[in-house]
Protein backbone atom coordinates (compact mmCIF):
# COMPACT_ATOMS: atom_id res chain seq x y z
CA UNK A 1 0.00 0.00 0.00
CA UNK A 2 2.76 2.30 1.03
CA UNK A 3 4.65 1.99 -2.23
CA UNK A 4 1.45 2.54 -4.24
CA UNK A 5 0.87 5.85 -2.45
CA UNK A 6 4.48 6.93 -2.87
CA UNK A 7 4.40 6.12 -6.59
CA UNK A 8 1.13 8.01 -7.03
CA UNK A 9 2.53 11.08 -5.26
CA UNK A 10 5.63 10.85 -7.43
CA UNK A 11 3.41 10.72 -10.54
CA UNK A 12 1.34 13.68 -9.38
CA UNK A 13 4.50 15.69 -8.70
CA UNK A 14 5.74 14.97 -12.23
CA UNK A 15 2.42 16.13 -13.69
CA UNK A 16 2.37 19.22 -11.48
CA UNK A 17 5.83 20.12 -12.76
CA UNK A 18 4.67 19.78 -16.36
CA UNK A 19 1.35 21.55 -15.86
CA UNK A 20 2.07 24.37 -13.46
CA UNK A 21 -1.35 25.99 -13.80
CA UNK A 22 -3.09 22.84 -12.61
CA UNK A 23 -4.05 21.73 -9.11
CA UNK A 24 -4.03 18.04 -8.17
CA UNK A 25 -6.07 16.73 -5.24
CA UNK A 26 -5.38 13.14 -4.24
CA UNK A 27 -7.26 10.71 -2.03
CA UNK A 28 -6.76 7.03 -1.22
CA UNK A 29 -10.21 5.44 -1.32
CA UNK A 30 -11.27 2.70 1.14
CA UNK A 31 -10.74 0.04 -1.55
CA UNK A 32 -7.20 1.40 -2.16
CA UNK A 33 -8.13 3.14 -5.41
CA UNK A 34 -5.87 6.13 -5.95
CA UNK A 35 -8.12 8.98 -7.04
CA UNK A 36 -6.67 12.24 -8.38
CA UNK A 37 -8.83 15.24 -9.23
CA UNK A 38 -7.34 17.63 -11.78
CA UNK A 39 -8.46 21.23 -12.14
CA UNK A 40 -9.11 23.38 -14.06
CA UNK A 41 -10.97 21.24 -16.59
CA UNK A 42 -9.27 23.05 -19.51
CA UNK A 43 -5.97 21.45 -18.52
CA UNK A 44 -7.59 18.06 -17.91
CA UNK A 45 -9.12 18.13 -21.40
CA UNK A 46 -5.91 19.31 -23.03
CA UNK A 47 -4.39 16.72 -25.41
CA UNK A 48 -0.91 17.17 -23.92
CA UNK A 49 -2.26 16.41 -20.48
CA UNK A 50 -4.22 13.39 -21.68
CA UNK A 51 -1.13 11.99 -23.38
CA UNK A 52 1.07 12.55 -20.34
CA UNK A 53 -1.65 11.07 -18.12
CA UNK A 54 -1.70 7.85 -20.16
CA UNK A 55 2.08 7.56 -19.80
CA UNK A 56 1.68 7.92 -16.06
CA UNK A 57 -1.11 5.33 -15.95
CA UNK A 58 1.19 2.94 -17.79
CA UNK A 59 3.98 3.59 -15.30
CA UNK A 60 1.60 2.83 -12.45
CA UNK A 61 0.13 -0.23 -14.15
CA UNK A 62 3.56 -1.71 -14.82
CA UNK A 63 4.27 -1.78 -11.11
CA UNK A 64 0.73 -2.43 -9.87
CA UNK A 65 -1.23 -4.22 -12.62
CA UNK A 66 -4.16 -5.08 -10.36
CA UNK A 67 -4.47 -1.74 -8.60
CA UNK A 68 -6.15 1.40 -9.82
CA UNK A 69 -5.11 4.96 -10.40
CA UNK A 70 -7.83 7.28 -11.70
CA UNK A 71 -7.71 10.89 -12.84
CA UNK A 72 -10.97 12.81 -12.72
CA UNK A 73 -12.17 16.28 -13.60
CA UNK A 74 -15.11 18.36 -12.47
CA UNK A 75 -17.22 16.96 -15.32
CA UNK A 76 -16.39 13.34 -14.73
CA UNK A 77 -18.68 10.49 -13.71
CA UNK A 78 -17.05 10.29 -10.27
CA UNK A 79 -18.05 12.59 -7.42
CA UNK A 80 -15.44 15.20 -6.68
CA UNK A 81 -13.11 14.75 -3.71
CA UNK A 82 -14.24 16.41 -0.47
CA UNK A 83 -11.24 15.90 1.79
CA UNK A 84 -8.06 15.15 -0.14
CA UNK A 85 -5.08 13.45 1.49
CA UNK A 86 -2.62 15.40 -0.64
CA UNK A 87 -2.77 18.58 -2.72
CA UNK A 88 -0.20 20.07 -5.06
CA UNK A 89 -0.42 22.94 -7.53
CA UNK A 90 0.32 26.60 -8.12
CA UNK A 91 3.33 26.51 -5.80
CA UNK A 92 1.41 24.92 -2.92
CA UNK A 93 1.84 21.45 -1.47
CA UNK A 94 -0.08 20.00 1.47
CA UNK A 95 -0.33 16.56 3.01
CA UNK A 96 -3.03 15.42 5.44
CA UNK A 97 -2.41 13.71 8.77
CA UNK A 98 -4.21 10.62 7.46
CA UNK A 99 -1.69 10.29 4.65
CA UNK A 100 1.20 10.68 7.10
CA UNK A 101 -0.28 7.84 9.13
CA UNK A 102 -0.74 5.65 6.08
CA UNK A 103 2.85 6.26 5.05
CA UNK A 104 4.12 5.61 8.57
CA UNK A 105 2.94 2.00 8.43
CA UNK A 106 5.60 0.04 6.62
CA UNK A 107 4.08 -3.46 6.44
CA UNK A 108 3.54 -4.55 2.83
CA UNK A 109 -0.10 -4.64 1.68
CA UNK A 110 -1.29 -2.90 4.86
CA UNK A 111 -4.57 -1.17 4.16
CA UNK A 112 -4.95 1.64 6.66
CA UNK A 113 -8.47 2.64 5.68
CA UNK A 114 -9.77 -0.93 5.60
CA UNK A 115 -8.28 -1.64 8.99
CA UNK A 116 -9.62 1.65 10.27
CA UNK A 117 -13.13 0.84 9.05
CA UNK A 118 -13.02 -2.60 10.64
CA UNK A 119 -11.96 -1.13 13.95
CA UNK A 120 -14.32 1.77 14.18
CA UNK A 121 -17.21 1.10 11.86
CA UNK A 122 -17.64 -2.69 11.97
CA UNK A 123 -15.95 -3.54 15.28
CA UNK A 124 -17.91 -6.77 15.68
CA UNK A 125 -16.04 -8.29 12.77
CA UNK A 126 -12.80 -8.46 14.72
CA UNK A 127 -12.16 -10.79 17.62
CA UNK A 128 -11.68 -8.92 20.87
CA UNK A 129 -7.99 -9.78 21.23
CA UNK A 130 -7.25 -8.75 17.62
CA UNK A 131 -9.24 -5.60 18.08
CA UNK A 132 -7.31 -4.61 21.21
CA UNK A 133 -3.98 -5.22 19.52
CA UNK A 134 -5.03 -3.38 16.39
CA UNK A 135 -6.45 -0.46 18.30
CA UNK A 136 -3.27 -0.16 20.36
CA UNK A 137 -1.09 0.01 17.26
CA UNK A 138 -3.40 2.65 15.81
CA UNK A 139 -3.34 4.67 19.04
CA UNK A 140 0.44 4.55 19.19
CA UNK A 141 0.58 6.07 15.73
CA UNK A 142 -2.29 8.47 16.00
CA UNK A 143 -1.79 10.02 19.45
CA UNK A 144 -2.40 12.68 20.50
CA UNK A 145 -4.83 13.60 17.74
CA UNK A 146 -6.67 10.32 17.21
CA UNK A 147 -10.13 11.79 17.63
CA UNK A 148 -9.55 14.33 14.90
CA UNK A 149 -8.44 11.64 12.39
CA UNK A 150 -11.38 9.44 13.30
CA UNK A 151 -13.88 12.14 12.51
CA UNK A 152 -12.38 13.15 9.20
CA UNK A 153 -12.11 9.60 7.88
CA UNK A 154 -15.60 8.60 8.95
CA UNK A 155 -17.09 11.32 6.83
CA UNK A 156 -16.26 9.43 3.62
CA UNK A 157 -17.37 6.03 4.83
Amino acid sequence: MNTQILLTIDIIKKLAKNFQEATFRYIVMPDDTNLVEVSPITIYQNDDFQEKKLDMLMEFSTQFPYESLIFISEQDIITLIDKPHYIIGKGKEEQSKELELMLAIKEPNYNFLKDYKEQFINPDKLKLSEKKQSLQSYRNLAQPQATKYKLSSVSYS
Binding site: L54, L57, M58, S61, L69, I70
Partner: peptide
Protein backbone atom coordinates in the same frame (compact mmCIF):
# COMPACT_ATOMS: atom_id res chain seq x y z
CA UNK B 1 -1.37 -0.08 -27.63
CA UNK B 2 -0.57 -0.16 -23.92
CA UNK B 3 -1.80 3.44 -23.75
CA UNK B 4 -5.21 2.48 -25.08
CA UNK B 5 -5.40 -0.56 -22.79
CA UNK B 6 -4.66 1.68 -19.82
CA UNK B 7 -7.32 4.15 -20.90
CA UNK B 8 -9.89 1.33 -20.84
CA UNK B 9 -8.58 0.27 -17.44
CA UNK B 10 -9.03 3.80 -16.12
CA UNK B 11 -12.54 4.02 -17.62
CA UNK B 12 -13.55 0.71 -16.09
CA UNK B 13 -12.15 1.67 -12.71
CA UNK B 14 -14.14 4.92 -12.84
CA UNK B 15 -17.34 3.02 -13.58
CA UNK B 16 -16.44 0.54 -10.82
CA UNK B 17 -16.02 3.33 -8.28
CA UNK B 18 -19.22 5.06 -9.39
CA UNK B 19 -21.08 1.74 -9.17
CA UNK B 20 -19.88 1.30 -5.58
CA UNK B 21 -21.00 4.83 -4.71
Amino acid sequence: TAQKANRYKEDLNKVKLRREE
